[in-house]
């Protein structure tokens, strides 16, 4: 079960957009069941160090095999976001 972590900085416009774009995409993919974890680097700068995430907003897709995949930006590029999350759809299909 992959874990999605969205790195944001408070309520900055890009962070807000990223949050909304991610939520929309998950809904479109039929994975509203997944609730991304949110890390606010303004509150938890150490988390940025431990995950090696410095650009915000960023979406980290963690898994058991590797240290995960990272997608920079406010997730406004729907095609990229969809591709990034594509395996979630497959997993859903397998699970269902």
């Amino acid at each position: 079960m992959p874990l999605l972590i969205l790195f944001v900085t408070g309520d900055a416009p890009r962070s807000r957009r990223a949050r909304a774009n991610l939520s929309n995409m998950l809904e479109r993919l039929g994975r509203s069941d997944l609730t991304p974890r949110e890390v606010d680097l303004l509150d938890q700068p150490q988390a940025g160090l431990s995950y090696s995430v410095f650009a915000t907003p960023s979406l980290l897709k963690a898994d058991q095999q590797s240290d995960g995949a990272l997608l920079y930006g406010d997730l406004s590029d729907e095609q990229r976001l969809e591709r990034f999350l594509a395996d979630l759809l497959v997993q859903k299909a397998e699970a269902g």
Partner: peptide, 19 residues
């Protein structure tokens, strides 16, 4: 930056500055 990292929209360095 991670070698595999991709970009989907604008980002900023606020997180970095906080760290």
């Amino acid at each position: 930056p991670r070698l595999s990292a991709e970009t989907a929209g604008e980002f900023d360095l606020e997180g970095l500055l906080s760290i």
